[in-house]
Design a protein around this nucleic acid. Structure first.
Lengths: 149, 149
DNA sequence: ATGGTTGCAAACAATTTGCACCAAA
DNA sequence: TTTGGTGCAAATTGTTTGCAACCAT
């Protein structure tokens, strides 16, 4: 048995537990959705998700409904890469994205200093008292596209 | 003549110049769009924009086409406030947003230390060499909604 | 057993395209 | 004058809803 297969099974079991932990049923479609996002390791477009889940035998409608629920429960996050369509990735990934404005390539980066940013923002704010999530995306050019500008 | 009227005319003239400067025609619809975003002073939803522009006598299609062009030229920016629909605001506003996850209220904040964040990200990056735009949104709770949680 | 979940069909909403006419430069 | 912009209608794409059958617990 290949290592990747083992890992996948372990992941799936973990996701089943996570789902039950937030009070939701661990259905095959939901587990497959989380596994797909996990294995991708990067934000997946709606298109791609629908495609992969269709291959798995899941209806579009179920995908939409599952994504809503998972986002609501905070297990996944919507990402706006300015590619023209929504992307999703597993939540709790404390990294952010560099996005190429030309080719659309995405690279992660960490250590954006978001903690100090949050405290500064809250200190400055009149009405806000807590920050739970954040979106940080940087848009620019990768080497290749920079040259061809 | 009221001061606000004067300001509006001055703004319009400025926007006409800006449009020509990026090689585009200064049509009434485009100027009205930019003026609308300017006067709002906060990100406007697609809905709101379409509504206001319809009142101005502009077709939806023209609004979509203008928004695309203005975004392409870097005069406006798409903002994802996780309200379920796209928002736009004038570009070059070097502030970011605090968004309430419950009521959707938006507040600006400045001084997020984006410059040092950008240099850290670029230093860390294998492929990226330039950052031209960024999106920084913090999601949390305002006083009122925090109490009622 | 049973209440939440799914698939299908159909409604609904959002966005884009083709084309004739009009206007900014 | 000429090139690009606009409005209208219709196509296309994206997302949601209603309901009967199904399955995770």
């Amino acid at each position: 048995m290949k290592a990747s297969t083992t890992n996948k099974r372990v992941q799936e079991e973990r996701f089943r537990k996570t789902l039950r932990a937030v009070g939701e049923r661990a259905t095959p479609a939901r587990v497959a959705l989380l596994t797909t996002l996990e294995q991708a390791g990067r934000p997946l477009s709606m298109q791609t998700i629908l495609q992969q889940m269709k291959a798995f035998g899941t209806d579009q409608v179920t995908v939409y409904r599952s994504l809503h629920m998972l986002e609501q429960k905070g297990l996944i996050q919507r990402v706006d890469l300015r590619h023209g369509h929504t992307h999703f990735e597993l939540a709790a990934s404390d990294h952010h994205h560099l996005v190429c404005l030309t080719c659309g390539n995405v690279e992660d980066f960490t250590g954006c200093g978001v903690t100090s940013m949050v405290s500064r923002a809250l200190k400055q704010s009149k009405h806000f008292v807590e920050v739970k999530q954040y979106a940080v995306e940087l848009f620019g050019y990768c080497k290749r596209c920079y040259k061809n500008k």
